[in-house]
Write a protein that binds this DNA or RNA. Structure first.
Lengths: 311, 311
DNA sequence: CGGTTTGATCGGTTGTATCGATGACGCCCC
DNA sequence: GGGGCGTCATCGATACAACCGATCAAACCG
């Protein structure tokens, strides 16, 4: 049988894919350029495969096979890490680094309450945070750059396990004096004819809001022709300011409202009438992660923080 | 971060799980006992985890953590192999060792025609064969001890991809002079009241046959009280002999019939009336195997061999 | 209670990963 | 167009770790 590639050489290869430069990749691996160069050469010799275009001047250009090998190398190194991780978790659960990814429509509202609670319950847990859109978080989860995601379900990703945390109801956010503000609750369909303001594309909350208002996938509300084409807010905070400025109405998740996102703006917040006006908050992790037990053990605490609270 | 365990040490651990004996595990790894012993110790030290019960005399007893680590080590080594495999496949597709698992109700009938065809089309492919029941084959596929399975679908296994090859119709096999033998086709339901002979438990063909005859899962045909309790044949060849001996009737798959399993026995073979009287033959492999491309390329040839032929 | 088996330990040897220095080559700039 | 720079490959020296053979301590067996 072909001898197995050494983890070290695979690390060199991955560093090279990341930096596209022998010197900097070597630096990232804390070895000299000569060592990394020899390592890559040895890997190509052992696999009997050309991973780099050697004739393309001095630039680092991967062959198609090189890219595939690199992807498999990433998976192989991660599964080696999983061995060590399983031991570490068994030795000292709820400790060490935990790289948590959060979407921008959850992070600013839950983390301020979640982090202290976690620190108190699991003081040895070191939480590294990263905020990004769902699709990018999922990609980083699969790459092994993140361990756990806090996001809105469902998130389409093979190879990931998920668990529900809580429902997060939507509120209609209206400018003061708006016609709908006189009602106790607002039917979601009524927003279809309003000027509905949304987050920019890529935020799952945008899709959830459109869905709740009865728009089909991809379809959207009518736009004022005078408005900048495709203009959309980049955060819920900007969105609130736009509604307060009278540009239209929007939907806000309960966690944002309870965190006081509309405080001081005079905005009128009304629950949606009828059922179905909510998103599901949840956790996601790589299937068969050695730390699955820990992640599931976090659920009650997280569900409590994410659940309804008195204002 | 914790340093990654070396593949060598993981191999030692797996050899130890297999042999439960330091000396023999060392021999299997082609190292001395002292080396393997030191390697295991080093692994336990690096992971800071007790993998073996050190106080249980001289016997080798794994801790629960030890077993989990071993399972993850198996996965890690396999993903390292996948790196080398990807390179080997790209360098020389359809060559090298291919460990093929086949179920006993397919192997004896298809392999005699499949092997020569494969040898002719892909002379550099070295096929290692293993015959076993579906569940055991699937387990060995997941363990990495087999690369490809030829079996009857569906086979329940997460982490495996499958593809259909061909339908394999069932024939009623009747002793000469049997009442049903006068008909051109036999309704499957008519076999419910016959003395239906079956393979022993564990063969998927047994379940398929029961299903075709209209028995619910787990339910079975009425038994002669004089018959040895739960007696069942161990191969289709024995089954044919039993039918020829007048002990009852059975169902035979078309591939067995065409291979001449009933030749010279005087058995009467009748197609089943109506639709649904067939099983699906297919291939299965580990998801994301580097050789998936090769496996799919084998499908046309295999489907042709597995498909209907003139008698 | 001696002999045998089994896993742990120790000193010596070999292999190899790594380093620093140097070479080969393309590229840019003056 | 030639000198200088940047980049990757190569080379000899070295330090570390894996490995072996021998030996030890404990358990097990007859």
């Amino acid at each position: 049988m072909t001898p197995l590639p050494s983890p070290q050489q695979l690390r060199y290869l991955l560093a090279l894919t990341e930096h596209q430069h022998f010197g900097r990749a070597a630096e990232a691996c804390a070895v000299t350029q000569s060592t990394l160069s020899a390592g890559i050469l040895a890997l190509e010799r052992q696999l009997d495969a050309r991973l780099l275009e050697r004739d393309a001047g001095k630039r680092v250009v991967f062959t198609a096979l090189g890219r595939e090998i690199a992807a498999r190398a990433r998976a192989a190194l991660r599964s080696l890490e999983a061995v060590a991780e399983a031991a570490a978790t068994a030795r000292a659960p709820m400790s060490g680094a935990l790289r948590l990814g959060v979407i921008p429509t959850i992070g600013p509202f839950l983390l301020p309450r979640l982090m202290p609670a976690l620190r108190q319950s699991y003081p040895r847990l070191r939480l590294y945070l990263r905020e990004d859109t769902t699709d990018r978080l999922v990609a980083q989860l699969n790459d092994g750059r993140l361990d756990l995601l806090l996001l809105a379900l469902p998130c389409a990703s093979a190879g990931a396990d998920t668990v529900k945390l809580a429902r997060d109801a939507f509120f209609a956010a209206l400018p003061p004096g708006h016609g709908l503000a006189a009602r106790d609750t607002v039917p979601a369909a009524a927003l279809q004819t309003e000027h509905l303001l949304l987050l920019e594309d890529g935020h799952c909350l945008r899709d959830h809001a459109l869905e709740v208002c009865g728009f089909a996938r991809g379809e959207g509300p009518a736009r004022d022709p005078a408005e900048p084409d495709g203009f959309a807010a980049t955060s819920l905070h900007t969105l609130v300011q736009m509604v307060a400025g009278g540009l239209g109405v929007t939907l806000l998740p309960r966690i944002a409202v309870q965190a006081g996102i509309a405080a001081g703006t005079g905005l009128v917040l009304r629950p949606l009438a009828g059922a179905g006006g909510w998103r599901t908050l949840g956790l996601a992790w790589r299937s068969q992660s050695p730390r699955e037990g820990e992640y599931r053990a976090l659920v009650p605490l997280m569900a409590q923080v994410a659940g309804p609270h008195a204002a």
